[in-house]
Design a binder for these strands. Structure first.
Lengths: 243, 243
DNA sequence: CGAAGACGCTGATCTGTGTCAGTCAATCCT
DNA sequence: AGGATTGACTGACACAGATCAGCGTCTTCG
């Protein structure tokens, strides 16, 4: 992958055809590179220092802790995604962000972002688009947890993740590699780890998907889509107004 | 309530002290008044015409339909809230909006909004703040449905609603009037209507809240807060950056 | 007026998922 | 090398909440 096609550029490029000039501007956002080890929170609830990042490689999750000690993972972020965009708006972050793997990310100052938007307004639209997509995904998770049973929920989740990864060149319709443990899946889907295991086995025995050894393999992609009523267009909208 | 203190102005005023000039600008947004009857969708999934509204009176809900015929209510909107702000960004709306009662709302054109922001940048920050709060609420609902049992979920929901209504002068710590049916509560909380009924009875018998005849009455506000571990600050943040 | 819907409410029964308790293999640490 | 930790996996059992079936009261409307 050349410098001109970071995951971030790939993602935005899916909605706005990017000129060379715009691509260059995007790449200039990537100068403040930082690395984070797995499992140590990058941003935690109540933190005052506000920083946003663009994920270059690795996976992270954002979650909220409950007094009881359990947690709810709100979403996973994959390369190309923004981290902590909202914590820039509020004085303090309202949720935690934890790397699942070792992570490389570019720190982004609000200032730089605004300057970039100034030089290339179409990029502002693209970023806004991406932010709205993330919000739509949270809504879809709400529907997932509220109204689908465990098996459909898992199926829907694996397909959604696939669609997102495909956008940044990390998945195909065959499958993708995935560092999530069954405990992480449980915290994200509102299930117990034990039940996650059972559901994955059932989906495997049904011949739909196999999730083993860090790889998700779609054995019957169309069947899976039908089974959980996945809406194929839900993540590739028509793009922003200013296309 | 004078024209200078619409619910919308009250809400924004809670985060930015508004000058008379800013109040006037806000009120000018309210000229295109429209009325909607209950139960007929104002905005539906896939609709192309993009319009945003500010709710002046009445209640609405935004929801997503599932192929099976069930639905998940994502959130309720009360006076002072924005409707369909996101549907302005996308070519088509990605969810439905249905009035629960008869509703009065002011149609807002993107153009007017931008001009207002131009004259009073602090209002832009306030609106952004409000939008972020709405997003934070969806996240909280996710936590609700994913990790709290039915009773705590209901308790948390009733308290959250109370906090929002208080902000626009429609509730006190004693209670508020509330047009939601048990079916609506069920669709919002991911429960069956039957179970909603049982949970409400239990909360009443515990001496926490009474929800009857269209009124929510907090019999033991502090007890209820403790019971569902409601975070008193979660909705009154520190305000936006540009305070 | 009477009929038809809403809506609140309840008991009986069924079921999806959680909880508990444990095994096994792989990896990391000292 | 031995011990600790982590993650996948399983069976037995318990329970929260769904589903089914039904009653009663209001409101709406032809």
């Amino acid at each position: 992958m050349t410098a001109l096609h970071t995951p971030f550029a790939l993602k935005l490029g899916a909605f706005v055809a990017l000129s060379d000039m715009e691509l260059n501007l995007l790449n200039q956002l990537h100068n403040r590179r930082r690395t984070f080890p797995a499992r140590r929170d990058m941003i935690y609830e109540g933190q005052v220092e506000r920083s946003a990042y663009i994920l270059a490689s690795g996976w992270v999750c954002s979650y909220k802790l409950l007094p009881g000690g359990t947690r709810q993972i709100v979403d996973f972020q994959i390369p190309g995604d923004f981290l902590g965009l909202r914590s820039v708006l509020f004085r303090t972050a309202d949720h935690n962000i934890e790397p699942i793997t070792r992570v490389k990310a570019s720190e982004v100052h609000v200032q730089d972002l605004l300057e970039t938007f100034n030089s290339a307004p179409r990029l502002a639209a693209a970023v806004l688009w991406a932010a709205s997509r993330d919000e739509a995904m949270v809504v879809e998770h709400l529907v997932d947890i509220g109204r689908r049973d465990a098996k459909q929920r898992m199926a829907h989740f694996l397909l959604e993740l696939g669609a997102r990864l495909k956008l940044v060149g990390l998945a195909s319709n065959d499958g993708y590699s995935c560092p999530l443990t069954q405990y992480l899946l449980a915290d994200a889907l509102g299930l117990s780890a034990v039940h996650v295991n059972r559901v994955l086995r059932e989906l495997r025995e049904d011949g739909f998907v196999t999730f083993q050894l860090g790889r998700v393999i779609f054995d019957d992609f169309d069947g899976l889509v039908a089974f959980c009523e996945f809406d194929r267009n839900y993540l590739d909208h028509d793009g922003p107004l200013m296309k």
